[in-house]
Design a protein around this nucleic acid. Sequence first.
DNA 1: GCCAACGTTGGC
DNA 2: GCCAACGTTGGC
Length: 158
Amino acid sequence: MPHHWLMKSEPDEVSIDDLARAPGQLLAWTGVRNHQARNFIRDAMQPGDGVLFYHSSCAEPGVAGLAEIAGRARPDATQFDPHSPYFDARAKVDAPRWLQIDVRLVRKTRLLSLREMREAPELASMQVLRRGNRLSITPVTDAEWQAVLERLEIPCRT
DNA sequence: GCCAACGTTGGC
DNA sequence: GCCAACGTTGGC
């Protein structure tokens, strides 16, 4: 049973256009430093899972495109890099603490703004919209996924 | 294990 | 820049 996800990225760091320009339109999703989000990568994400690529902490927050999980979880390389802002001194190569996973662009979409998402009754219970939510990766239900695609006027995949 | 202090997230 | 909300840290 495939899952769907919403993954937040600050466009100043990695935007939907960065993903579109990447070789193979594929990027490793690194820098997750929250246990719950990491556990989604480790335990639940499967190749082919749908991803709502969400721009956060920016002038126009919202869903900026569709992507898909493109590989398996593996140790996040940035945890071992002393020059990375995501360096974790407690992580060891033989005992990694954090995971990354590849994400491939499906298509860029119009921006489905946070405001529009909040106004959509079908999206009212989305985890990402819940008060106080700070998780950078949240599950998206089938119904929410369909509703987002409808709002973006994109035919649903089978 | 408790909990105050502090840091981070992220919309506005 | 503000601030609510939440996570993490570290003394006890």
